[in-house]
Design a protein around this nucleic acid. Structure first.
Length: 260
DNA sequence: CTCGACTCCTGTTAGC
DNA sequence: TGCTAACAGGAGTCGA
């Protein structure tokens, strides 16, 4: 599913949409519009305008316009961004393998005939004009030791829930977090403030290296753990059967042997 | 303030 | 064969 890495791919894809005059907006699915945003408002603000920049904070894609508005796009679990009918990602874990245009929830047409579209079977994504961004934590590509310390300090929540909290770190989803904790040999249920100095250093290293490595490999589903995130899957490191349980309401897999 | 529990969405799949 | 129920996870809300 789209986590920070996938949305970074979408951002790069969205660069193709910059500098092109918008001729039309299709936002018929009201459920897809969040906050105060309405279909009429999107139309009146965007038609005739053009995007000048594509930014990303965590899983939120931001398109700035020349006219001064910012369009925020969220992709939920199964949303893909198509620019001129091309997606930067062809496979999304847990999404359908089919690719149907009736799953298009939001679309922008340019004067040159091209399109920017969100195709999202499960409708968990959303579109919002001028979304609030000050409640998001450090982006996954920017996180450093100081930032991680702040995130972990004084929280008794499970470390996994804390890492996935977008107010703390923006961009980590369920698959990435399981992968990172597996690489770091840390049990996801440990309380966030229980990590030793050494464990925090190890965790920071694995956050950075997993993000960079999986970005190169093509997505958050390319981790070493992913193929074994199934019932009776086993640990690729030492062969033990993985445990499966919920943390913060999310399905979690971890190795009882080396994650402590 | 923190944090767990619950809810939403719908395509896919396990099981009867 | 056909049906149902469970499952997947991002994000928001609610109440303790």
């Amino acid at each position: 599913m789209p986590e920070g890495i996938e949305v970074e791919y979408y951002r790069i894809g969205a660069l193709q949409a910059l500098g092109r005059t918008i001729s039309s907006v299709a936002a018929e699915d009201n459920y897809y519009l969040k906050g105060e945003t309405s279909s009429e408002e999107l139309y009146s603000f965007l038609v005739g305008d053009e995007f000048t920049a594509a930014r990303r904070i965590g899983k939120l894609l931001l398109l700035d316009s020349k006219g001064g508005v910012t369009l925020g796009l969220r992709f939920g679990m199964t949303g893909r961004l198509l620019v001129d009918n091309v997606s930067s990602i062809d496979h999304l874990e847990y999404s359908s393998t089919r690719n149907e245009s009736f799953w298009d929830r939001f679309s922008i047409e340019f004067e040159d005939g091209g399109l920017l579209t969100i195709r999202d079977p499960r409708r968990l994504g959303s579109v919002e004009l001028n979304p609030k961004v000050d409640n998001l934590g450090s982006d996954i590509y920017q996180i450093d030791g100081r930032g991680l310390n702040v995130v972990l300090r004084g929280s008794s929540r499970p470390i996994k829930a804390r890492l996935m909290d977008q107010k703390q770190i923006a961009g980590l989803g369920n698959l990435l977090t399981d992968e990172i904790l597996w690489r770091s040999s840390i049990d996801p249920r440990r309380s966030a403030d229980s990590l030793s100095k050494e464990e925090k250093r190890c965790l920071l290293y694995h956050i950075k290296s997993a993000i960079n490595q999986l970005t190169e490999l093509g997505g958050s589903h390319m981790g070493k753990l992913q193929d074994n995130r199934v019932i009776s899957g086993f640990c690729p490191k030492d062969g033990a059967f993985l445990e499966r349980y919920k943390v913060g309401g999310r399905t979690t897999y971890s190795c009882p042997k080396h994650q402590r």
